[in-house]
Nucleic acid binder design. Sequence first.
DNA 1: AAGTTCGTGCAATTTAAACTGTACGTATAA
DNA 2: TTATACGTACAGTTTAAATTGCACGAACTT
Lengths: 162, 162
Amino acid sequence: MGKLQTNDIIVNIMIEFSKTIELFGLTTVEARLFAYLYLSEEDLTLDEMADALGKSKTSISTNIRSLAELNLVTRVWKKGVRKDLYQANSQLFKTFMTSFQRKWIDIARRQKISLEEINNHYKDKSSNELTLEEQTILTERLNEIIIFHAQIETLFKNMKPN
Amino acid sequence: MGKLQTNDIIVNIMIEFSKTIELFGLTTVEARLFAYLYLSEEDLTLDEMADALGKSKTSISTNIRSLAELNLVTRVWKKGVRKDLYQANSQLFKTFMTSFQRKWIDIARRQKISLEEINNHYKDKSSNELTLEEQTILTERLNEIIIFHAQIETLFKNMKPN
DNA sequence: AAGTTCGTGCAATTTAAACTGTACGTATAA
DNA sequence: TTATACGTACAGTTTAAATTGCACGAACTT
């Protein structure tokens, strides 16, 4: 058979599942790594994952760290085992949706504030080349964009991932 | 001044706003292009946008087409003007959120079906190397993933972008 | 009909991202 | 202490994506 030591079925599921995970903003490798770890019954070492995905150990080390920062995987301690062991966070929906939610709310809020600052400051500057009509339209658009961000924030705050 | 002919303020807003648009799955150039067009009071030609963003006409042509396919911009006809004119769809929230919603629902549903097929078929195959325990756990995980997709679908269907 | 202008397909190039091998610091084992 | 194993920083390489110049077909102008 091919290089992969894992069962074909697991590989199939991993590839399919990872497509969804990518939607949450993860790269292909990150997504597959999570999927593979999630499907595994046991905690896995870097070497095992590198071997299973056909990637270098360095690559796995980097990517697993990204996943850990997102709280999607956890390092696990096991007596007598020197190597680092990892496991996937098992509460799929809650884990993904809440971090997704938080990400959107944060960015929407930050951007809204940033745009409001621009809105407040630019009128002071007399050194811009816009006509009065252009300024009127620009202000209007800017307000619409600010509202847009507020709406995003509201929508995601009301989102209840139960 | 610099190369950009547009007012600094517009460039500022464009850059800030485009960061949010990127969240919806657009590339940086697509996002900036939309933002710039949205901020413009008038319909714009390819040349004007290429000039404003400092990109080649080919690049604008390609990217504006992507935006058009996403229904984010529209080609506009104006009597006596030979060049193609474009304008941004002005209903920000509705436009972005509904297409966002549809995208997630589609993918979640498709993936759920795909995983259910795997689930149905793999049991027939006797040619896999898994132990009975491994099979039990795999089935369990697979079901959780399928449920996960169903939950995503439900969540986005209940999402009301008004 | 002849000459312009426009948008875009395509190939070549540039730019950026992903990936890996080597080397080193730290920790464990002997 | 010495030796072995582990994880990761870093630089160099490979791979993929973005960008652009050129060229061609279609549409318009004179």
